[in-house]
Computed example of a mutant assay.
Amino acid sequence: MTTLNLIQHHPAEGPGAIADWAASRSLTLKIFRADLGQLPPVSAAPVIVLGGPYESQAGPAWLENERQWLAQSLEHGAAVFAICLGAQLLALSLGGNVRRMERPETGWTTVKFADGQSMDVLEWHEDAIDLPPGAQLLASSEHCEQQMYRTRPTRLGLQFHPEWNAASVATLNAHFAGDSPLPRGEQDSAAHAAVFEWLQATLDEWWNVSSATH
C-alpha cells in the first residue's frame, strides 16, 4: 500500500474522516505527532497537516520546529493539504500572515465557494489568515473571508474542519469538556455525510495531482 504522511498536533485531534478516505483508497496514513517531537524527514513527499488548539505565531516550542520543517519541505516542492492550524502554518511559510479575529468562529458554519456552491462545515478557531502572495481564494464565510485557498494545484489550505466526523466531535467534546463549543448529543448525519462527500472528492483531486508530480 502507498504511504501518505500526516502531521497531528494534539491527542484529541486525529485524522477523523481522512482515515476513512485513505482506507478506501488503499493508502496507509503514517501519522507523526509534532507535539511529541515527531516529524518526517524533509522531502518533497506529499503531507496532510491537521489543526490543533495552538496559536500559530505564539505556540509551544515544538511548533517553531514544525514551521522550519514545513518551510524546508516546501522548498523541496512538497504537496500540502493543510487544515486550520496547518493552513495557518502553510500561509506563514509562503509569506502570508495570521491575525486574531474579532470573534471566534465555532460550530456549524456556512462557507461559500468561489464556484457559487455552499456547504455547512465545522469550525473552531480564533485566528484568521491573510493570504500569501499569489494565493487563490476558494471559499469564505460570513465572519472569515479566508476559509480555503490554493497556492498551486498541490497546496491547499482550509480554515474549516472537513475531517471532523461524529466520532471526532465526541472525542473533542470529551477531551475539552465545557470548553468545547462543538455540537453535543445526536449529530446531524446528513451534514456530516455531505462534508465527507466533499472531502473525498477534494482529497482525490489533491492526491491525484500530487502523485503525478511527486
Rank of each mutant, 00 (worst) to 15 (best):
D127E: 14
L137M: 02
P153D: 05
L70P: 01
S43C: 02
E75D: 13
T109G: 10
K112P: 06
A79N: 01
I129Q: 00
A82W: 01
E163S: 03
V111L: 09
Q57L: 14
L138H: 07
S56K: 06
P162S: 05
W164F: 15
G134Q: 07
A167E: 15
Y149F: 15
N97R: 12
S118F: 09
G157S: 02
Q159F: 03
P162K: 05
W62R: 06
P60M: 03
T151P: 04
A71P: 09
L90I: 10
L131A: 04
Q117I: 08
E64T: 14
V111S: 02
G96N: 01
A128G: 11
H76N: 12
T151V: 15
L89F: 09
T151M: 05
G96T: 01
A91H: 01
W69Y: 02
L63T: 08
S73E: 04
R150S: 15
E102M: 10
N65E: 14
R155A: 11
E66C: 03
V121A: 15
A139Y: 00
A44N: 12
E75S: 12
E66H: 08
V111D: 03
P132V: 00
A135V: 03
A166Y: 10
A58G: 08
S118L: 07
A61F: 09
L85N: 05
G157V: 04
W69L: 00
A44F: 08
R100K: 14
L63K: 06
E123D: 08
A44Q: 11
P153V: 14
